[in-house]
């Protein structure tokens, strides 16, 4: 059986909010490392990979690996019944038909118990190759969100150009064109507001903004986002949490 207790229900709520517009039916794969998921959107242009590490739960008990097939719209409905500060416990049998979710308030005088019906989900798992990216940019997640939301007003696509001078997000559409350039800067007082660029070679890639705007729904998870790019491979957009991560991969637009 699985028993996993999370100090703050808000963490799972934020994770689900971050991915539920991209993927609908998913498996939570529970193993010794924690609770993981990997899923592609319907068009196979984007892939989401999430891990809530077992260390983030206390306790985390698991007798054998199980997959919990979940419809995220249904899970969202149940999670709305939890307060962000509630303690959340997930429980499931070894061959589960349902997932139990127990919410307890911090004062320990309210316990809510919900059962979510599980589904059989046949999910394709992809091997994500270890990649030495040519450029890795870490920046405030709110800044990245603003740039994507601004540029999508002008165009469907954004070209991201990383060089030693900085990172340039540019687009052009029917009404005109626009760009935002960020230079590397180190904010000593507020490190989360720094922009860091690690570069082994310059990179220029074009991506669909619709997906990037969607990824930015994960901004609530982390004040910092990391973009990793190499020519001709999918972009990696990572939001790291205290004990886990949500990673999005986005296939580039290629050629003319």
């Amino acid at each position: 059986m699985l028993e996993a207790r999370l100090e703050q229900a808000g963490v799972l709520k934020k994770v689900v909010d971050a991915i539920r517009d991209l993927v609908q039916d998913i498996n939570f794969d529970c193993n010794d490392s924690g609770i993981a998921l990997q899923a592609m959107d319907n068009s196979h242009v984007a892939l989401v990979s999430m891990l809530l590490k077992s260390e983030g739960f206390s306790p985390y008990r698991l007798d054998r690996n199980i997959a919990l097939g979940i419809n995220l719209t249904s899970l969202t409905k149940v999670l709305r019944c939890a307060q962000n500060e509630d303690i959340l416990t997930l429980k499931a049998e070894d061959t589960p038909d349902t997932l139990s979710l127990i919410f307890e308030n911090a004062e320990n005088d309210r316990i809510s118990e919900y059962e979510l019906k599980l589904m059989d989900i046949d999910q394709e798992h992809l091997g994500i190759p270890e990649t030495e990216y040519a450029a890795a940019i870490s920046m405030p997640s709110a800044e990245f969100q603003r740039i994507c939301r601004d540029l999508i007003q002008l165009s469907d696509s954004v070209t991201i150009e990383a060089s030693k001078e900085g990172v340039k997000f540019s687009c052009s559409g029917d009404i005109g064109s626009g760009s935002v350039t960020l230079r590397q800067q180190n904010n000593v007082d507020k490190p989360d507001l720094s922009t860091k660029i690690e570069l082994t070679e310059p990179v220029t890639l074009t991506f669909s903004l619709k997906y990037l705007v969607n990824f930015c729904k994960a901004s609530a998870l982390s004040s910092v986002v990391t973009l990793s790019l190499s020519n001709e491979v999918p972009l990696l957009v990572e939001y790291a949490m205290g004990s886990g991560f949500v990673r999005f991969y986005l296939a580039p637009k290629i050629g003319e």
Binding site: S43, E124, S208, A251, I254
Partner: peptide, 14 residues
């Protein structure tokens, strides 16, 4: 703007 590629062109099934 280029042609949209897919994730499966880069990552293999296992």
């Amino acid at each position: 703007e280029g042609t949209q590629s897919t994730i499966t062109q880069f990552f293999e099934g296992r």
